[in-house]
Nucleic acid binder design. Structure first.
Lengths: 215, 215
DNA sequence: TCGATAACTTAACATCGATAACATTCTTGA
DNA sequence: TCAAGAATGTTATCGATGTTAAGTTATCGA
């Protein structure tokens, strides 16, 4: 229905043969479609079609489907980093962990499929080319800095590294479980309340109670 | 190469036409291949071929590829539950959280692709048919019971639920990050040491220090 | 102006999940 | 005992996908 039936020489009617910045066009389209269909169902052909370009065109800008997804994931890591950073910058001392966790969690909830992609197995093998590892490492370093700052630990110390690991595990664990619906979430519970509940749970498990925000 | 070229009536030479228990054969083969190629690349055709059966045969036992993966995931949840349960049963009181976390983490590390499948988006939509939701709920209930038992909380109480949530987040967060290589893991660090490091990090973040095992 | 090159095209291949139509075996009830 | 029919296989085919090869068109520097 949608494809032109029997055009011999031309299947697309575009003003110019060359599109210009097709790479960013592809990335934008893919980003949009990602949240519609999920990482697994995102097809290169569909993305190309959305722009009005042949499937093979994408291969002049990306090595493979995995490579394109890798770029998308790297973009996600950068956005996640700034989201956490912004929130952490304006947080009152002592509530930094909670604020950072909230920012992290909200980013994941607002971009569930992107987050799945970032931490999923979809594009594994194409990390090197993209700066993905860089973006990820920077995110982690940021988390580490934020947490060290709040707990008064010397940055780079063993304690700071452990605490950062814990913070990352906390954020990712909660986000991942929530996004993929593996959590029995009582209905009506807001994102903030869920984060607080988790923090409260950790406080119970690890002994303290007052550290983590409201009752 | 592998398929018989021009046999008209028979392409496979099997003693009997009917295989018998093809469903479990398919599941076993799929389970084995899952750890070889990962959830995304696991094809029904390859699984069938491994058994020596036509691709269409699988559809007499499973509604779809997703359904087969769903069964596999459910199986995973059951195994995970018993792994945690066994370890928890023989743990000294006070170290229950650590032991449960270790069992959880080890299961994930030993069956990385199965774990990815269990918590991934691969088979979403086919949950109802399989008892998958059941298996998952039971796992969660188990975790909740284990944790409540160790912290002296009344099972079913709000605190117990929060603590269970935290425990689940801890286990899944660490396992997920590790499996997917999103963690900068210092080389030579054993599974146990990584778990301990995470626990230590949580102890730092949430105030106490002695709760979680060795220094 | 012209030719090299980059950016796009069509066409094709292999593989995949899925379905339809047919073949064989097992089971069951008279 | 034995045929009817349900189960469980088969082949053939469809439409969609990632990817590559070979041809076409636009751009840009000498």
């Amino acid at each position: 229905m949608k494809t032109v039936a029997k055009a011999k020489t031309r299947t697309v009617d575009r003003p110019t043969y060359h599109v210009g910045h097709l790479d960013t066009l592809l990335l934008d389209a893919a980003r949009a479609m990602l949240e519609e269909v999920g990482p697994a169902k995102l097809s290169l052909r569909a993305v190309s079609a959305r722009i009005g370009v042949s499937p093979a065109a994408a291969y002049h800008h990306f090595d493979s489907r995995a490579s394109l997804l890798g770029h998308l994931a790297a973009q996600g890591f950068r956005e996640l980093a700034v989201a956490v950073e912004e929130r952490a910058a304006t947080a009152a001392p002592g509530s930094l962990l909670r604020e950072a966790a909230l920012a992290y969690f909200r980013f994941a909830c607002r971009n569930p499929c992107l987050y799945q992609l970032m931490f999923g197995p979809e594009f594994i093998g194409d990390e090197s080319a993209v700066g993905l590892a860089d973006a990820r490492t920077r995110s982690f370093t940021l988390v580490q800095a934020v947490i060290a700052k709040d707990s008064g630990l010397e940055p780079g110390s063993g304690g700071a590294r452990s605490a950062a690991l814990a913070g990352w595990v906390l954020g990712h664990g909660l986000a991942s479980l929530t996004i993929q619906g593996r959590l029995e979430r009582p209905e009506g519970l807001t994102d903030d309340q869920l984060v607080d509940r988790a923090l409260q749970g950790f406080a119970i498990l690890f002994g303290s109670s007052g550290v983590s925000g409201p009752a």
